[in-house]
Amino acid sequence: MSIENASPELQLAVDLIYLLECNEIDPATALAALDIVRRDFQEKMQHAGTTTPYLPMGQ
């Protein structure tokens, strides 16, 4: 499947992986930062009255 035909979340995931790898970010640092980002966006969704459709980091 072409990335252009992939879901928006998969396209974003590929972009983020590329960005992190190109900048040689330590995997533990990347995961810790992504957990912070996930919590931030969950909070924003709660304030907006929406629910979290997918929690990829085991939460």
Rank of each mutant, 00 (worst) to 15 (best):
M1L: 14
S2K: 14
S2Y: 09
S2C: 03
A6K: 02
S7D: 03
S7R: 02
P8Q: 01
E9Y: 02
E9L: 02
Q11P: 00
Q11A: 01
A13E: 01
A13L: 02
V14K: 03
D15W: 01
D15F: 01
D15Q: 02
D15A: 01
I17V: 13
Y18A: 13
Y18V: 08
L19F: 03
L19M: 02
L19G: 01
L20A: 05
L20P: 00
E21H: 06
E21K: 10
C22V: 15
N23E: 15
N23W: 07
I25C: 08
D26M: 03
P27Q: 08
P27L: 09
A28R: 12
A28L: 11
A28N: 12
T29M: 07
L31Y: 10
L31M: 12
L31C: 04
A32G: 11
A32W: 09
A33N: 10
A33V: 10
L34V: 06
D35G: 14
D35E: 15
I36P: 00
I36D: 11
R38M: 12
R39C: 08
R39H: 10
D40G: 06
D40L: 11
Q42H: 12
E43F: 04
K44T: 10
M45S: 11
Q46F: 13
Q46C: 04
H47Y: 10
H47W: 07
T50F: 08
T50L: 07
T51R: 08
T51G: 04
Y54Q: 08
L55T: 15
L55Q: 15
P56G: 12
M57C: 04
M57P: 01
